[in-house]
Design a protein around this nucleic acid. Structure first.
Length: 665
DNA sequence: AATCGTCTGCTTTTT
DNA sequence: GCAGACGATT
C-alpha cells in the first residue's frame, strides 16, 4: 500500500510520526530529517484511513509545499485531496469564498510590494504637512507590523502613520484590493466576526501540521487556533534556534510557549543530525547555548568528527573575496566536489559584489540567490495590470499603470483630474473615465482617446468573462492589438534589453497558456498563482549551476558540502543595528543557521578592515567567535595560509585535472 | 517626456 | 560606492 518504511526512522522520528492525536510539538534541529518526519506522519495518517481532505499541512514557502507534495507522492499511492499549502494560499482560498462578508468583492486583486508602495506614496503626499516626512517604505513596514499584531487603524489623526494606515485600508477596500498581510488578517477577521464562516472551516481539517513554526506570527497562530477542531490535532514542527524572521513579525514565543496555546502537548526533540560532522555541530552548539530563552537541545551525528572548523583572519574584504574564490577553485580542481556543493554565505547582499567580480575573473560558474523577481519587471507588471483591471475594474492602481502604456494620448494631467473627480464622486477611476459628463470637459481628441481606451477594456472584459473563454489567446490578441511589444521595443536602449524584455512578456504569455491547460482556475487563478509565487518564473530559467552566493537568511533550509561564511565582524554579524534594537540573540541564531548549513567543511572569515560607504574602516572580530568552543577550531590568518607548503598529492591532482580540462576541449 | 546631474542614505525580505 | 529619487533642464 504505502512505499515507505516506518522502521527507517530513528526512535524520536518514529515517535513524532506516529503520535497522531492531540497537540504535538516537534523540535527539529537543523538537519535532523524534519521533512522526512512530516511526510512520514502524513503517510501514517493516510495508512489509518484518514481521508486526505481532512489533512492540512501548512508551510511558509511554495518551495517547501512543492517539496512536501513531491515527497508524499513518492511514498503513498494516492495523495489526491491532501491540503498542502502556504499560509497565504490557504487564506486566499478562504477569502475567495467568504470575503464578501467583509464588504469586498470576491474578484479582489492582490497588491504586490510595488503596488503597495505606490499607493502609500500617494496617500502620504496628500496627507502629510509640509514639514512632515514619511518614507513609503517605513509606513509600509509599520502598517505590516500593525496588521500582524492585530492592531486596527486608529480613529483619529493623532499620528501621521496612524492616519496613513487608516486611509490606506479605506483605499484598498475601494480599490477592491488586498495586500499580503491582508490575506492573513482578513481571513482571521472573517472567521472571527462571522460564526457561519468559522463553522465552514473549523474542524474541516481534522489533522493540521505547521512547518517552520518558529517563523509564525500572531495572525498565523490565530489562524491555526481558529481552524483547529476539538480536540486540536495540531502538530507543529520547528526549531526556535533557527528563528531569524523576528524583524518581520515572527514570534519565537509561539514555539517557546506552545503549551500556553495548546495545553498538554506531546513534545518530541529531534537531535540526531544527518548532515554535518561533529566538529561543525559542536561549534554550532557552543554558539547557540549562549542564547537565553530557548528550548535546550544539542545536535550530534554519526558522521565522525571531520575536519576542524577554520576561522581565518583577513587583511581586508578584497583579500577575503579573492581568497574564498581561489580556494573554492582549488578545492574543485582537486576533485573535492562539483561547483554546486560550494556556497558562500554572508550577512548582506552588498557583500556579494566583490565575490561576483572574483568569480567572473576566474570564470567560475555561480548563482546569486536573491535579486529582483520576474514579477517585479516592468513589462511583466504592465501586462498583469491589464489583466487585473479587466477582472477588477475598481483597481485604480493597475489602471493608472496602463492608462497610457503604450502611449495613447491620455496624459498625466488627464489622469490627475480623473482621480480628483473619482474621489469627489466616490467611484472608481474607470467609472469616471466612462462618464460622459467628465469627458465633456476635455478636448475632442483627449475624450476620444479615453473612450477608445474604455471601449478596449470593455471589449476584452466581455470576451474573458464568457464561459469557457480561451483566455490565453484572448490575452495574446489584446497584447497584439495594443501594440505592446512594439512599444516596449521602442523604449529599450539596447537590442539586448529589448530582446530580454520581449522574452519576459512571451514567457508570461506561455505561462498563461500553460496554466490554462493544467488548471481550471481561470484568469483569476492564474493571477493568484503568480501573486503568491513570485519566484517561480525566475527559478525556471535560472536553474543555472554553480557556486551558490547567498545571504544567511535565504540559506535556511539549504545545505552544502563546503561552506565559506564571510564577514564575521562586529557591526556586520552581529549587524550594527541589532545592538540598537536589542536583537543580538537573533543575530546569533543567524550565524547558527549559517554554521549548520555545512556538511563537511566550514571556513569562517573576518577582516581587519573593510570598505564601508566608500571609505576604509577598521573592523574587529565578531563577539560570536569568542563564544565558539576552541577544541574544534583552527584559528589562522591569510598570511599563514598563503605560506603553507602545498601537499604533493594535491599538486598532482590539480595538474591531472588541468590536463583533463585541456585535453577534454 | 526624457535625460542629465545632484543628493541621500544605506540589513535581512518566505508571501 | 553606488543605487534610487528627485528636480532642473532641453
Amino acid at each position: 500500500m504505502s512505499r515507505f518504511r516506518l522502521f527507517d526512522l530513528n526512535p524520536a522520528q518514529h515517535d513524532a510520526a506516529t503520535t497522531l492525536e492531540g497537540p504535538l510539538l516537534i523540535l527539529a534541529g537543523a538537519g535532523t530529517g524534519k521533512t522526512r518526519v512530516i511526510t512520514a506522519r502524513i503517510a501514517v495518517l493516510l495508512g489509518h484511513d484518514v481521508p486526505p481532505h481532512q489533512i492540512l499541512a501548512v508551510t511558509f514557502t511554495n518551495k517547501a509545499a512543492n517539496e512536501m507534495r513531491d515527497r508524499i507522492k513518492g511514498m503513498v499511492d494516492d495523495a489526491k485531496g491532501l491540503n498542502i499549502s502556504t499560509f497565504h494560499a490557504l487564506c486566499l482560498r478562504i477569502l475567495r469564498v467568504s470575503i464578501e462578508k467583509l464588504g469586498y468583492k470576491n474578484t479582489f486583486s492582490i497588491y504586490s510590494e510595488g503596488d503597495q508602495l505606490g499607493l502609500l506614496k500617494k496617500i502620504i503626499n496628500r496627507t502629510s504637512a509640509q514639514d512632515e516626512n514619511l518614507e513609503p517604505a517605513v509606513a509600509k513596514a509599520w502598517i505590516s507590523k500593525a496588521k500582524n499584531n492585530g492592531w486596527r487603524p486608529p480613529e483619529d489623526d493623532e499620528t501621521l502613520v496612524g492616519s496613513v494606515y487608516r486611509q490606506y485600508q479605506i483605499a484598498l477596500k475601494q480599490l477592491n484590493a488586498v495586500d499580503f498581510d491582508d490575506l492573513l488578517m482578513l481571513a482571521v477577521r472573517v472567521m472571527d466576526d462571522h460564526e457561519d464562516v468559522r463553522d465552514l472551516w473549523r474542524g474541516r481539517f481534522r489533522y493540521i501540521m505547521v512547518d517552520e513554526f518558529q517563523d509564525t506570527n500572531k495572525l498565523q497562530l490565530d489562524l491555526v487556533t481558529l481552524l483547529a477542531g476539538d480536540p486540536p490535532n495540531v502538530c507543529v514542527v520547528g526549531d526556535d534556534d533557527q528563528s531569524i524572521y523576528g524583524w518581520r513579525g515572527a514570534e519565537v514565543s509561539n514555539i517557546l510557549d506552545f503549551e500556553r496555546y495548546f495545553p498538554n502537548p506531546h513534545i518530541v526533540k529531534l537531535e540526531q543530525n544527518y548532515r554535518s560532522t561533529n566538529a561543525i555541530l559542536r561549534t554550532a552548539n557552543s554558539l547557540i547555548k549562549n542564547n537565553p530563552r530557548r528550548r535546550p537541545k544539542s545536535l550530534w551525528s554519526d558522521n565522525g568528527d571531520g575536519e576542524k572548523v577554520r576561522i581565518v583572519q583577513m587583511p581586508d574584504d578584497r583579500v577575503e573575496a579573492s581568497f574564498v574564490t581561489e580556494e573554492i577553485q582549488r578545492m574543485q580542481m582537486e576533485n573535492l566536489a562539483p561547483w554546486e556543493e560550494f556556497a558562500v554565505l554572508y550577512r548582506m547582499n552588498a557583500q556579494s559584489r566583490l565575490l561576483e567580480n572574483n568569480f567572473r575573473r576566474l570564470k567560475i560558474p555561480y548563482r546569486l540567490v536573491g535579486g529582483k523577481s520576474f514579477y517585479d519587471r516592468r513589462e511583466v507588471k504592465d501586462v498583469l495590470a491589464y489583466l487585473s483591471v479587466i477582472l477588477n475594474p475598481t483597481d485604480d492602481v493597475s489602471l493608472f499603470r496602463i492608462v497610457n502604456t503604450p502611449a495613447r494620448g491620455i496624459s498625466g494631467a488627464t489622469t490627475e483630474r480623473a482621480m480628483e473627480q473619482s474621489i469627489a464622486d466616490k467611484c472608481s477611476v474607470f467609472e469616471t473615465l466612462r462618464s460622459e459628463e467628465f469627458l465633456a470637459t476635455f478636448t475632442k481628441k483627449t475624450a476620444g482617446a479615453i473612450r477608445d481606451f474604455a471601449a478596449l477594456l470593455d471589449r476584452y472584459e466581455t470576451r474573458i468573462l464568457e464561459p469557457a473563454a480561451d483566455f490565453a489567446s484572448i490575452v495574446n490578441a489584446m497584447v497584439e492589438e495594443i501594440g505592446y511589444l512594439e512599444d516596449l521595443k521602442r523604449s529599450c536602449k539596447t537590442p539586448e534589453e529589448a530582446l530580454s524584455r520581449e522574452s519576459n512578456v512571451r514567457e508570461m504569455l506561455n505561462a498563461l497558456a500553460d496554466y490554462q491547460e493544467r488548471k481550471d482556475g481561470g484568469l483569476q487563478g492564474f493571477l493568484d498563482d503568480l501573486a503568491l509565487d513570485q519566484k517561480k518564473e525566475e527559478e525556471d530559467d535560472d536553474q543555472a549551476k554553480g557556486v551558490t552566493l547567498i545571504t544567511l537568511h535565504a540559506a535556511k533550509g539549504l545545505e552544502f558540502s563546503h561552506v565559506h561564511l564571510i564577514g564575521l565582524e562586529e557591526g556586520l554579524l552581529p549587524h550594527a543595528r541589532s545592538k540598537l534594537e536589542g536583537t543580538l540573540d537573533e543575530e546569533r541564531r543567524l550565524l547558527y543557521v549559517g554554521i549548520t548549513r555545512a556538511r563537511k567543511t566550514l571556513t569562517m572569515t573576518h577582516c581587519n578592515s573593510r570598505l564601508k560607504f566608500g571609505n576604509t574602516s577598521p573592523c574587529s572580530p565578531s563577539i560570536f567567535i569568542r563564544e565558539l568552543a576552541t577544541d574544534d577550531l583552527e584559528l589562522t590568518n591569510h598570511h599563514a595560509l598563503m605560506n603553507q607548503p602545498v601537499e604533493d598529492s594535491s599538486v598532482r591532482a590539480s595538474f591531472a585535472r588541468m590536463r583533463e580540462m585541456l585535453e577534454g576541449k
